[in-house]
Design a protein around this nucleic acid. Structure first.
Lengths: 133, 133
DNA sequence: GTCAATGTATCATTGTATGATACAATAGTG
DNA sequence: CACTATTGTATCATACAATGATACATTGAC
């Protein structure tokens, strides 16, 4: 379902949360879908169950997941709640800037960057209309 | 010259390094330009001089800066060295994916995302030819 | 009620980020 | 050369974050 790099400099909790966010964003996980139990996913990834639990809770705070102790966790929504919207939109521009900064320093030309961008756009908006959120 | 958020969740050293990378990428800093001394920039930002020094060293490892003890630090190149290229290109796609993930979850539509992307592209490739690295 | 399965809380440990301070190298000045 | 000011660097201490081990609480099936 997703993977983590144990030797990465980005924390495991964040890697897991980002991975799940991406799954939801691309449609790989839809509203109502059940997620693996924290123990199951922890075993798959080779990390502590708490690490997975923390990722789940972070996403629950964003309104993306719902979790009930004893039952499990499922996708609550494919869009972030109002509380997260502002922070989220701010991150978008920051991350785009960071990506473009890296691209420029790596001597990618505009054409190459645009091509990559379009490829990824298709991953995320696969089958969506041009202005459908 | 640049600013940092003391209460951010992203480390100061990284904020500073990213800020300088961006300056170099956009052309605000050119090869040969002198950077502020670590004490000067540290005072401006309100952080410890070591924090700035660490950012400088990270960028030196990328081949972007040259620093000589007793003399100062200057921009060595506007492109990352070969050692950093692979890691850099990997980050580009990751960051783009993260940005698009955020955008989709924030219910931005394709048109809005493309518009933002183009605006930022112009910032970085201001006055460059379409395929000029 | 009992039991298995699930998420949660608590605590310990380790590593990272930051800062205070002392050190080393460079360059100017005489 | 000696001296001094300026620069980056190394060392150490401290606070905090991330991860994990373990015990706890809730849910649901029987």
């Amino acid at each position: 379902m997703l993977t983590v790099k144990l030797d990465s400099d980005v924390p495991l909790t964040l890697q897991i949360a980002e991975g799940i966010r991406r799954q939801i964003a691309t449609g790989g996980l839809k509203t109502g879908d059940e997620l693996p139990t924290v123990r199951q996913l922890a075993a798959d990834l080779g990390v502590n169950l708490n690490t997975v639990a923390r990722a789940y809770r972070a996403l629950e705070a964003d309104g993306l997941l719902t979790t009930v102790r004893g039952r499990g966790t499922q996708v609550a929504s494919a869009t972030v709640g109002k509380a997260s919207l502002a922070a989220n939109r701010e991150r978008i521009e920051d991350r785009l800037r960071g990506a473009l900064s890296d691209a420029k320093l790596a001597e990618l030309d505009q054409t190459a960057v645009e091509k990559l961008f379009r490829k990824l756009m298709r991953e995320f908006w696969r089958g969506a209309t041009k202005n459908g959120g």
